[in-house]
Amino acid sequence: MELTKADPKGLVRESYNIEGITLGECRSIFMDWALSLPVGGETSPALHALIAHYGPGREEHPMTGVLKAGLAAPDRTGRRGGREARIKEIRQ
């Protein structure tokens, strides 16, 4: 995946340029990054591209840890809950 597609607003790139950035700030940037991706798209290919580009030599940077944690989390697609989920629980 191209970096321009993996990081459309350049948020991750900029996080690596901020000296003294904290873990909490990286998490906030990660949330903004995730919300900037196309709806319904998978995050795993983008995360792989970002880690491959920015991670080497920056293993201790807090954003590297946040990206790796994002990759370890399962992709959640579709809605959870709502009326349909409650009806299924009742029927069982």
Score class of each variant (00 low, 15 high):
Ala49Phe: 01
Phe30Trp: 14
Gly57Phe: 10
Tyr54Cys: 01
Ser44Gly: 10
Ala52Met: 02
Glu2Leu: 02
His48Gln: 12
His48Cys: 13
Ser15Thr: 07
Glu59Leu: 02
Ala69Cys: 04
Gly20Ile: 03
Arg13Thr: 05
Gly40Arg: 10
Ile21Asn: 04
Leu71Pro: 11
Ala46Cys: 13
Ile87Pro: 07
Lys5Val: 07
Ala85Gly: 02
Ser44Lys: 15
Met1Arg: 02
Ser44Arg: 15
Met63Ala: 03
Gly10Ile: 02
Asp7His: 03
Gly82Ala: 12
Ile18Ser: 09
Leu50Val: 01
Pro8Thr: 03
Gly55Thr: 05
Gln92Ile: 10
Pro74Leu: 09
Ala49Leu: 03
Met63Pro: 03
Gly40Leu: 10
Lys9Trp: 04
Ile18Phe: 00
Arg83Leu: 14
Ala72Val: 14
His61Val: 06
Thr4Met: 08
Ser44Glu: 15
His61Arg: 07
Ala46His: 10
Arg58Asn: 13
Leu71Asn: 00
Pro74Arg: 12
Arg76Ala: 15
Arg83Asn: 08
Arg83Ala: 12
Gly70His: 06
Leu37Gln: 07
Glu84Lys: 06
Asn17Asp: 14
Thr43Asn: 10
Arg83Ile: 13
Trp33His: 02
His48Gly: 00
Arg79Glu: 15
Ala52His: 10
Asn17Thr: 12
Gly65Glu: 04
His61Ser: 02
Leu35Lys: 15
Leu67Ile: 05
Pro8Asp: 05
Asp32His: 11
Ile29Arg: 09
Arg27Ser: 06
Glu89Asn: 08
Gly24Trp: 07
Pro8Met: 08
Leu23Arg: 09
Asp7Tyr: 04
Thr22Ser: 14
Gly24Pro: 03
Ile18Ala: 08
Glu19Phe: 01
Ile51Cys: 12
Met31Tyr: 06
Ile90Ser: 04
Ser36Asn: 11
Gly82Asp: 11
Pro62Gly: 03
Lys68Gly: 00
Leu35Asp: 09
Trp33Asn: 01
Phe30Lys: 07
Val39Ser: 13
Arg27Trp: 05
Ser44Cys: 05
Asp32Glu: 15
Leu47Gln: 03
Gly20Leu: 06
Arg79Val: 12
Glu60Pro: 02
Ala72Gly: 10
Gly65Lys: 06
Trp33Val: 00
Trp33Ser: 01
Gly55Lys: 04
Glu84Ser: 11
Glu59Met: 01
Asp7Gln: 00
Pro74Cys: 00
Lys88Gly: 04
Arg27Leu: 13
Pro8Gly: 01
Cys26Tyr: 08
Arg13Met: 12
Met1Trp: 01
Ala73Ile: 05
Gly41Val: 13
Arg76Ser: 15
Thr77Gly: 12
